[in-house]
Simulated scan of single mutants.
Amino acid sequence: MALARHRDAYDHVVAALRSAGCVFAEDEADLLIEEASDPGALESMLARRVAGEPLEVIVGWAEFGGLRVIVEPGVFVPRRRTEALVREAVAVVGTRAIVVDLCCGTGAVGMAIQGAVSGIELYASDIDPVAVRCARRNVEPLGGRVFEGDLYAPLPASLRGRTDVLVVNAPYVPTGAIGLMPSEARDHEPRITLDGGADGTEIQHRVAAAAADWLAPGGHLLIETSQEQAEHTAAAVVGGGLTAEVRRADDVDGTVLVGRRPHPRGPSGPHVGGG
């Protein structure tokens, strides 16, 4: 009988999710049923999902980089494409490195890097107090520190000129394109986590302009961007005195700009490359 009731619940949830346009209705149904504490909770969670609320917010977590990341209401939900940013960071970070996660949101990027490379010193910052609260739940149990404020402003001054890796998933959706995003993003995630200004790169420019002051010689700046905006992101990074190379990960539809602060004895000037 219990199995029959479970099957009826599953069919009901799948049908409702399909009607709402959820592409992965079966997978989402399994997760909702697993996370619901009782039939009433399941119906409440289903209603929220049908209304367009992100699944990760409803269940309270997202899978990212092989980790379970806490996701609170009002926080940007980690996307799979951002795993490309983590991969590129892991490729250049060493043990005992200082890593700073700017515009950290849930803190997922820093968490994933720390999960892949032992012994790093992790710092993160975000301007949104809701994101900071969530990131502290994710990052601080791992030994990292999270600060509230605008980009570099809240970071300890001792990190200036000593940071080995800066990872940045700043908002990069052009203001005029936000209305074209899926409902679960434009209606249920804070605009501050999406809006990158007129061309989507305004915050990236601010990050790039100050990056050289915070990076150690040979240190890396990694910024998630889009294929369409990569050229503009690269120009901003070069303008900040770094080298710049665009990396593409087709498997997750991710684009990452990898910048590097030259060593004093290194090449005399920055360059732009593609990959």
Results as ranks from 00 to 15, higher is better:
Ala153Lys: 09
His263Asn: 08
Gly66Pro: 12
Ser226Val: 01
Arg79Val: 05
Arg81Thr: 09
Pro262Val: 00
Glu26Leu: 04
Val165Arg: 01
Gly161Asp: 11
Ala210Trp: 01
Asp101Phe: 09
Arg162Met: 13
Glu83Asn: 12
Glu26Ser: 14
Ala135Arg: 04
Ala157Lys: 07
Glu35Ile: 13
Arg136Pro: 08
Gly149Ala: 07
Ile203Arg: 01
Val173Tyr: 07
Ala112Met: 09
Ser44Tyr: 05
Arg247Asn: 11
Ala208Ser: 12
Leu257Gln: 08
Val238Ile: 13
Asp126Gly: 05
Gly218Trp: 09
Glu28Asp: 15
Gly161His: 03
Ala4His: 14
Gln227Ile: 07
Asp101Cys: 05
Pro78Lys: 07
Ala15Ser: 14
Val256Trp: 11
Tyr152Pro: 02
Leu42Pro: 10
Ile223Phe: 11
Gly274Ser: 15
Pro174Ser: 12
Val165Gln: 03
Gly94Met: 09
Gly94Arg: 15
Ala4Gln: 15
His263Ile: 03
Ala108Arg: 04
Trp61Asn: 07
Asp27Val: 13
Ala51Asp: 14
Gln204Ala: 15
Asp38Glu: 09
Tyr123Lys: 07
Ala25Glu: 09
Arg248Leu: 12
Ala41Tyr: 00
Val99Leu: 12
Ser183Met: 06
Met1Lys: 11
Val130Asp: 09
Leu166Gly: 07
Arg260Cys: 14
Glu189Ala: 07
Gly105Ser: 01
Val77Arg: 00
Ile58Pro: 00
Gly60Ile: 05
Gly241Asn: 02
Leu42Trp: 10
Arg206Thr: 10
Cys104Ile: 06
Ile223Ser: 08
Val256Phe: 12
Ala249Ile: 04
Arg137Met: 14
Ala216Lys: 11
Asp150Ile: 03
Ala25Asn: 07
Ala62Tyr: 07
Arg145Gly: 00
Arg7Thr: 13
His232Arg: 14
Ala209Val: 14
Thr106Tyr: 02
Pro141Val: 00
Ala236Leu: 05
Asp199Trp: 01
Glu26Thr: 15
Gly275Pro: 01
Gln227Gly: 15
Arg49Phe: 07
Leu159Gln: 12
